[in-house]
Amino acid sequence: MGLLDRGLEIKDAEQVRLMRRAGLVVGETLQLLRDAVRPGLSTGELDALAEDAIRGAGATPSFLGYHGFPGSICASVNDEVVHGIPGSRVLAEGDVISIDCGAIVEGWHGDAALTVAVGGVPEQVGELIEVTRESMWRGIAAAHVGARIGDISHAVESYLRAQGPYGIVEDFTGHGIGSQMHLPPNVPNVGRPGRGPRLREGLALAVEPMVTLGTHECDVLDDDWTAVTADGSWAAHWEHTFTLTPSGAWVLTALDGGEADLTRLGVPFGPWAD
């Protein structure tokens, strides 16, 4: 592992493979939670499922105890954008929940998030979930060796601006990841192309757009964690951890490595070969 280009952490093939193991734990846990979401289930019950799954896979929850955070997942419901604390809140028909999850394997991190509708939701809410997910993939697809962080940010922003008057949250960003959950550089969801650090093989990033049906502005509740929209509009949040290998992009937290979506977008896909 070397530190290059403004202190960015560059991983070798073996370190990336450990991150892939952590990423698979995250991806499998999120799939379990997505399938478990239903009216009448509490966010605390989802958190317990997540911790059992992560530890059962031989990994450690990244979030639990991180700067005092009390859960293994962030569970953000409706107007909660990010960092919702899991607990006694019971999900109801028509809610949406964003679940953010992290795991550590042998000191290496994976981090991903998704947004799930709890039963039927209005069409505009379903569209919000889908455009947020697609903006994440557009951001990842803009990454290649020699590109810059701003190219990712611009791809996320330009796709969302073309879809409608969505609020693109600026207070929280994606980030570098590897031997720690949060590393340089920040990966904003708005920005100009050609700006910021240059992308290298072995640099791992988490791309995570947070998008609302109203304002981009957020407030943090008195628990000092939960971020909510300032205007009460509903939000969606998607995230994947990825890296660049000699053969293309590898999405470490996607169960298929990102092959289906990267191929759909015409982007070279490739795990790190031996």
Score class of each variant (00 low, 15 high):
113 A>G: 01
15 Q>D: 14
29 T>R: 02
175 H>R: 13
131 V>Y: 07
70 P>M: 10
166 Y>M: 08
44 G>L: 06
188 P>R: 02
26 V>I: 05
123 E>G: 08
243 T>C: 12
127 E>L: 15
213 L>Q: 06
181 M>K: 06
44 G>T: 09
79 D>P: 02
247 S>M: 04
184 P>N: 12
116 V>C: 05
230 A>G: 01
173 T>D: 11
101 C>N: 08
72 S>R: 01
24 L>F: 07
159 Y>P: 00
252 L>G: 05
219 D>Y: 11
112 A>Q: 02
110 G>E: 00
208 E>V: 03
167 G>K: 06
140 I>A: 09
207 V>L: 03
27 G>Q: 09
13 A>W: 01
7 G>H: 07
106 E>N: 13
89 R>G: 05
125 V>K: 00
1 M>L: 13
249 A>F: 08
176 G>E: 03
197 P>A: 11
180 Q>Y: 12
176 G>D: 08
13 A>E: 11
114 L>Q: 02
47 D>F: 04
223 D>M: 07
146 G>C: 09
24 L>S: 07
61 P>F: 08
262 L>Q: 05
113 A>H: 00
230 A>T: 03
135 S>W: 01
111 D>W: 10
158 S>R: 15
241 T>Y: 10
94 G>M: 01
127 E>W: 09
231 D>E: 13
15 Q>L: 10
65 G>S: 07
226 T>V: 04
176 G>H: 03
58 G>S: 14
154 H>G: 01
114 L>T: 02
240 H>W: 14
217 E>H: 14
60 T>E: 15
155 A>P: 06
237 H>F: 15
164 G>Y: 14
234 W>I: 03
84 G>Y: 10
51 E>Y: 11
133 R>Q: 14
61 P>E: 14
272 W>M: 04
255 L>H: 11
177 I>K: 05
167 G>I: 05
218 C>Q: 09
160 L>D: 06
128 L>D: 06
60 T>F: 14
105 V>C: 00
51 E>N: 08
219 D>V: 13
133 R>F: 15
128 L>T: 14
102 G>N: 08
7 G>D: 12
7 G>T: 06
231 D>W: 04
6 R>A: 15
63 F>L: 15
91 L>N: 10
24 L>P: 00
64 L>P: 02
21 R>N: 02
241 T>V: 12
160 L>V: 04
91 L>F: 05
252 L>P: 00
260 A>N: 05
63 F>N: 12
180 Q>M: 14
71 G>T: 09
196 G>T: 09
84 G>E: 04
98 S>D: 01
52 D>N: 13
177 I>C: 04
255 L>P: 07
77 V>Q: 09
95 D>Y: 15
271 P>E: 14
31 Q>V: 13
232 G>T: 09
155 A>K: 07
30 L>S: 10
104 I>E: 08
188 P>S: 13
110 G>C: 05
62 S>V: 12
204 A>P: 00
84 G>I: 03
82 V>H: 02
224 D>Y: 08
10 I>M: 10
232 G>M: 09
159 Y>W: 03
170 E>P: 00
273 A>C: 03
37 V>Y: 08
59 A>D: 12
78 N>Q: 10
262 L>H: 02
46 L>Q: 04
100 D>M: 06
110 G>W: 01
85 I>N: 00
11 K>M: 08
46 L>E: 10
214 G>L: 07
13 A>R: 14
266 G>F: 10
250 W>M: 03
148 R>F: 02
